[in-house]
Design a protein around this nucleic acid. Structure first.
Lengths: 304, 304
DNA sequence: GCTCACTCATCACCCCAGCTTATGACCCCA
DNA sequence: TGGGGTCATAAGCTGGGGTGATGAGTGAGC
């Protein structure tokens, strides 16, 4: 039952990627700072565990088999998720010597920031980042008090006392379990229909709920919620299990949508978009590391 | 340097998710089939490793701290990637007793199939699936020879001798490194410009390249490639490192786009879309497990 | 043809992370 | 005031993964 018994440890996956990249067990071993026999043995036991031959070994090096290439691609995704985990937790640890302190809303901290931190590390390896996560209000506080150098928020407006720039957009999408009646509709949902429907929602005060509230105010406002849950994760789980539909950030549900655990319900007339903004203290344009991160995140984005 | 030393092992992450879900170390331990002290110790050493307190322990159970909730969300993504890895490799192992054999093109096998297999496992836990990966031609062969029960291909048409249905679409996108001149354009690229530009491409014969070729045939055809590489991964790596622009499946680059390692270059006039199709032997509509998987994958998709 | 430089595999040995069981402290409720 | 639940600590075992030394295969170069 436990996954860990059927999936090789991260170290083994990392080793596999190194072998694929470098073309030799020995070189991969050297790169990871272990001995060649250790590498050889680990790959071998991984092959036994998976029941799949991964490498074609020859006296001139090792190449991936066809199956091995596929396995390596899947392994890469695990390792990339682990890199994001690493970047995130490292920032969360909040070392005092960090050169840049970032305050971010939950959604951004959860889904976007780790990737940015990885990119930043690649561009500026010497920048240690601290992360403070909270809602828009606490992000503003942290910036105004000087605790944070740069903030990221999603929402309709820039908090008082701050300047900022739009770095992207976040679409809210209506989702339901594939078995839900809405999943079989051939016509888009109207605002009125959405307003009438009991939804699974985050508790009052969450950013997502505010946007939804204001977008539906002209259509009669939100109906009484079906369920009020404390976290995005809990909402997703409830929707997947068929409890009812919900409105969630696109960022939170892309995976569930591609895997068909959830179905997007198309919506007519109401654009549920909100801007993602980088923010800072009024008239104190970010400099140094903060500026590096800002330029990194404000690449032109799809003008959808 | 090696990632594995800074990221807890999969077993520990899995345990953390179980604790978050069940609200108690002991119950999580029971679910994973280990003793309560083992769970306690593992979480504790994970907290030491990360330098972050994850749990509020009380005599009535354990709840996540704020930081712990964020860490758990990141951990969940690692575990989900590991689940996809597991589902994929398990199908690749190709057990003889499998009730369903699927043949899929590389792109689909790599990015979509693992998720579908997870969903299928949830719906029909007793269905063991075998996977044969190849290009469109080999998928067709496997179906016609009876080796495979159901196939998935991306491309412009249905291979000879097969029936099929469109289950989704795959957009090809032009991508470049954030530092590339194209990344700073304010106007969309034209077909003629794209045709003139030397690109990093997969070798001749790949599905992506065919679609691109045919879409640009009216604009003068593809320019001489800058580089020809054997795998999507290699192309991505070359683009990220700044070697030049490329055209790749949206599926292959979403992560790089959200993390801003790559920038999408908007394109004017040419819709580089291709259908994703489920296919089977002519007039032999899928039944049994094949039908289960088919209904799962053919949920209505965004009519973009 | 020999040597060198590279590949990978095998063997013997060692160590510690993570497991177990047994126990104890704390809290709350019937 | 027991009995259910929580978590922590302690002592002891085990095995996976590590090292280092060695050997066997292959190809390039003199």
């Amino acid at each position: 039952m436990p996954l860990a018994h059927r999936v090789p440890e991260l170290g083994a996956l990392e080793l596999l990627l190194a072998v694929a990249r470098l073309g030799s067990l020995g070189r991969a071993a050297r790169e990871l700072g272990i001995s060649q026999p250790a590498a050889s043995g680990r790959i071998r036991s991984m092959e036994r565990q998976l029941g799949v031959a991964l490498l074609d070994r020859s006296p001139r090096g090792s190449r991936l088999t066809e199956a091995g290439a596929l396995v390596t691609d899947w392994a890469r995704r695990v390792v990339e998720a682990a890199e994001a985990f690493d970047a995130g937790t490292q920032a969360l640890r909040g070392r005092r010597d960090s050169r840049l302190t970032v305050a971010a809303s939950m959604t951004i901290a959860e889904y976007l920031l780790p990737g940015w931190l990885i990119a930043l590390r690649a561009a500026r390896p010497d920048t240690a980042v601290s992360l403070l996560a909270g809602n828009s209000a606490t992000v503003a506080e942290r910036l105004l008090s000087g605790e944070a150098d740069l903030g990221f928020v999603e929402g309709l407006s820039i908090p008082e006392g701050l300047d900022g720039t739009v770095i992207g957009h976040d679409r809210l999408v209506v989702v339901a379990a594939p078995g839900h009646p809405w999943a079989r509709r051939r016509t888009p949902l109207t605002a009125a229909e959405l307003a009438r429907a009991p939804l699974i929602l985050r508790e009052r005060g969450s950013g997502t709920r505010q946007v939804l509230d204001s977008a539906l105010s002209k259509s009669g406002g939100l109906a009484e919620p079906l369920l009020e849950l404390a976290s995005t994760t809990a909402v997703k789980a409830a929707v997947v299990s068929g409890a009812g539909p919900a409105v969630l950030s696109e960022l939170a549900v892309t995976e569930e949508l591609t895997a068909r655990r959830l179905t997007e319900i198309h919506l007519h007339g109401i654009p549920l978009r909100r801007a993602l903004r980088a923010v800072w203290r009024r008239s104190q344009l970010p400099t140094g590391p903060a500026r590096d991160l800002l330029t990194l995140t404000s690449q032109p984005t799809p003008p959808l």
